[in-house]
Design a protein around this nucleic acid. Structure first.
Length: 294
DNA sequence: CTTATTACCTGGCAGC
DNA sequence: TGCTGCCAGGTAATAA
């Protein structure tokens, strides 16, 4: 591990000691955070370098179901990939190419001989050791962020009535609100744009101004877009790969994101790009009509 | 309090 | 071939 900054809440040495010989007893997700639970009770083998973790998560999931549901409270490690992070399980000899090799910041050595590599070319992501130093402000912030996450749009985390009420209470424009992880957890820039297109809502619409039908369409769109994207193993606009190193194919299904100037799939009007909340925002000016005043 | 901008980093790509 | 400038999956800090 070249740079200790990627691990928050512990020094690289402390982190290694914490994970070495431990078993990954749970694997979960909350919003955009990946959550790992460790079980130190049955120590086995040893890792090297960045740390070692024993056994495979697949079997562990069944072994301790209680921990799985107890999301952040029970988790020991949280990983946020931010823009360009990748977490890849692979055989140790696998060559990911010079760029990703240069940006492999943490490597877990599993006891089946395989590796779990944290790769991040842009260095934005972090590995948080949650039981770590309470005086570390970065860890504190992460814990606060984690506990302040809004509901999951899927998996029964968000009721329609609740969503509608919370939308109505917000004066903010809808796109930044969708990106606000404390409002709803898990939507990023790509999916926010796709959701708004499907719902026929302009990104600048004040959240409270959405009609009942628009709000309902947006609620449905969030759940559908996420479900479809997960089904397609994600959106590899550029270089995203999943845990198995595979690219996702949802990029082929994108209707507005990254399609500036191309015809709207519904009406043929060229897709427009604007900057909203500092993010590239793609929409159909015809299907998503602008609110009264901009 | 809310909202806009900047900072964090590196790399890919279009255009010259 | 370079080189330049722009853009990028996110969010926290800072400014207004």
């Amino acid at each position: 591990m070249r740079n200790p900054k990627f691990i928050v809440g512990a020094s690289p040495e402390e982190f290694r000691r914490a994970v070495e010989g431990a078993r990954i007893s749970g694997l979960d997700r909350r919003g955009k955070f990946l959550l790992l639970s460790l079980d130190r009770s049955s120590r086995t083998v040893a890792g090297r370098r960045a740390g070692g973790a024993a056994r495979l998560p697949g079997e562990a999931a069944e072994a301790s179901p209680a921990r799985q549901t107890a999301a952040p409270a029970g988790a020991d490690i949280a990983i946020h990939l931010k823009m360009a992070g990748q977490l890849i399980a692979c055989p140790p000899e696998l060559d990911l190419g010079p760029t990703r090799a240069r940006h492999t910041h943490v490597t877990f050595h599993l006891d089946d001989g395989s590796e779990l590599r944290y790769v991040d070319t842009r260095h934005f992501g972090r590995v948080y050791y949650l039981p770590g130093r309470r005086d570390d402000p970065a860890l504190r912030r992460a814990l606060e962020t984690l506990s302040g996450l809004g509901p999951e749009p899927r998996e029964g985390g968000l009721e329609w009535e609740d969503f509608r009420a919370r939308l109505k209470a917000r004066g903010a424009r809808i796109k930044p609100l969708l990106l606000d992880q404390s409002f709803v957890a898990g939507l990023g820039n790509i999916y926010a744009d796709e959701c708004l297109f499907r719902a026929g809502v302009h990104p600048l619409c004040p959240a409270s101004s959405l009609s009942e039908a628009q709000a309902r369409a947006l609620y449905d769109a969030m759940r559908e877009v996420l479900a479809e994207a997960i089904d397609q193993r994600g959106t590899s606009v550029r270089d995203y790969v999943d845990g198995e190193g595979r690219r996702g194919s949802f990029a082929e299904r994108l209707r507005v994101y990254g399609r500036t100037g191309q015809p709207c799939p519904r009406c043929g009007t060229p897709i427009q790009r604007a900057v909203v909340a500092g993010r590239g925002t793609h929409f159909c000016p015809s299907c998503q009509r602008e609110p009264e005043r901009s």
